[in-house]
């Protein structure tokens, strides 16, 4: 294993921002290769943990290094400046590194960071981006693929997650890492992790096992794994949305990952001052809750639940 320096940016008063990659060189020159990108945002705790756990696995748990067949590059953290102070984006100008790709070496700071990262990860057969949900919700871990014309749905299924969300490409998506990586002929997938500040062991195990399964099924490592789920490909029309008709204190009765039936009570909103129940969420379909609003206080109109319909 080699540690490679991908970028090094100085600061007026902070220690330099150093972006490092852990490169595991494969034993088979004909095997495919993969690069895995961890935390690009400062609140990407599970992405950071999942990537660092993978480094530990490859370094310390696979004793016969010949079993690592293809080159594997893991970059656990891109944005340690934000991680260290619990900021979400680049701390100075609040720009999102994951909207700066493919980057520009003469541009603004985050464009330069994106360029250096992109230069390091271009040319890999596969690319895995560990992200968190962008809105105020928690979710089961799933694969997100844009309908870009370059996406690899069959590859996305090999993670063995329950859901592959195959969604429309929006203008902002054209400056993300996933889209640009695909444009440069890497089969890129985003694993969307729950947006939690603490490590949820069940979630992190699921994400880790998904990555190992992907590496194994795509012949990057020789490692026996048990099969995961047969992934459901879910587009927008497969997802039922429940919005909050009132504001107040939000109580989730069913967590993400729970199967529900039409008519089940899945949540409530309580008036924040007089304590009365002002709304009860009742499922309008059979299916699985895949995302739940994550805060205890909810705004009127906020998306409270996303349910993948089973019929």
């Amino acid at each position: 294993m080699k540690i490679i320096e991908i970028a090094n940016f100085t600061s007026l008063n902070r220690a330099p921002l150093v972006i490092e990659g852990y490169l595991f060189e494969g034993s088979d020159p004909y095997a495919p290769s993969v690069a895995i990108v961890g935390a690009m945002e400062g609140k990407n705790i599970l992405p950071l943990y999942s990537a660092s756990k993978l480094v530990d696995f490859l370094k310390n748990k696979i004793h016969d290094k010949d079993k690592i067949r293809g080159n594997i590059l893991v970059i656990p953290s891109i944005n340690s400046y934000a991680l260290n102070i619990n900021e979400r984006f680049w701390p100075l100008d609040k720009t999102n590194i994951n909207t700066m790709f493919p980057g520009y070496e003469l541009g603004e700071t985050t464009q330069r960071i994106a360029k250096k990262v992109f230069d390091a990860i271009r040319g890999y057969t596969y690319g895995i981006i560990l992200e968190s949900r962008e809105d105020l919700s928690n979710c089961i871990p799933y694969v997100k693929l844009f309908k870009s014309g370059f996406e690899d749905i069959e590859g996305a299924k090999t993670f063995g997650f329950r859901v592959v969300n195959h969604r429309e490409l929006t203008p902002v998506d054209t400056v993300t890492l996933q889209y640009n990586w695909q444009l440069w002929e890497t089969k890129a997938y985003s694993i969307v992790c729950p947006n939690k500040n603490q490590i949820d062991i069940d979630n992190s195990n699921e994400i880790f096992e998904g990555i190992i399964q992907f590496l194994s099924k795509n012949k990057l490592i020789d490692y026996r794994v048990l099969n995961g789920f047969e992934s459901v490909i879910a587009a927008q029309e497969d997802i039922e949305i429940a919005k909050a008709p009132k504001s107040g204190i939000f109580i989730t009765m069913k967590k993400e990952g729970t199967y529900i039936s039409k008519g089940d009570v899945i949540g409530q909103i309580v008036h924040s001052l007089n304590g009365e129940i002002v709304h009860t969420f009742i499922s309008t379909c059979n299916g699985m809750i895949v995302c739940c609003y994550k805060n205890g206080l909810i705004l009127e109109g906020a998306l409270a639940f996303r349910i993948i319909k089973s019929d």
Partner: peptide, 12 residues
């Protein structure tokens, strides 16, 4: 456009 905020206020 309006949205009630959780505690006694409306975004308008």
């Amino acid at each position: 456009f309006s949205s009630q905020l959780p505690v006694g206020e409306t975004l308008s």
